[in-house]
């Protein structure tokens, strides 16, 4: 009787482990939660964490040129790019209209980052350092790309605002 109980207890624990693994796997698939935060609020939170003096807000035309993305396709899209042309500081914030856009946006961001790295490679040491420490944060329907001295703080503000 004792032994049968023990077998049962062990079996229950193993089944619990299986359930736990299933929950974990399902959670991997569910992906990140979409944030319902308004784009304007997130934008304010992100930009207030940054020193914007080295950047300027981009018109849609510039976003199209630097990232190849049309602002109209997204729920929200803001780009701050360097004022002095030899600067590398940049903040790019997107709220996706739907998940199918994510791949294209991430590709555009990576393309931009690679292009900037090449532009400053072997030439702009400070800029290269900033670019290497840049943050691409993909959180469900929001994506943030920061090249900045305070990238970590800006990213934290971003995460906090969702």
């Amino acid at each position: 009787m004792m032994k049968a109980d023990r077998i049962l207890i062990y079996r229950i624990i193993t089944l619990a482990a299986i359930v736990l693994m299933l929950v974990y796997v399902v959670s991997l698939f569910r992906g990140e939660k979409e944030s319902s935060a308004a784009f304007a609020d997130v934008e304010t939170a992100v930009m207030s964490a940054a020193d914007l003096s080295t950047m300027q807000k981009a018109e849609n035309r510039m976003i199209k040129r630097l990232y190849g993305l049309s602002a109209g396709d997204y729920e929200g899209l803001t780009l701050y790019y360097p004022t002095t042309n030899m600067g590398a500081e940049e903040i790019f914030l997107v709220k996706l209209a739907d998940q199918s856009q994510k791949e294209a946006v991430l590709a555009a961001v990576n393309e931009r980052l690679a292009g900037q790295k090449k532009a400053f490679d072997g030439y702009g040491v400070g800029q290269t350092e900033l670019l290497n420490a840049s943050v691409i944060d993909d959180r469900g329907n929001y994506i943030l790309f920061v090249v900045n001295q305070d990238a970590a703080a800006i990213d934290a503000a971003f995460a906090g605002s969702l």
């Binding site: 023990r6 077998i7 062990y10 079996r11 624990i13 193993t14 482990a17 299986i18 693994m21």
Partner: peptide
Amino acid sequence: VFNYFTGLE
């Protein structure tokens, strides 16, 4: 955890 308890079982 799973394999430890499966062994015991």
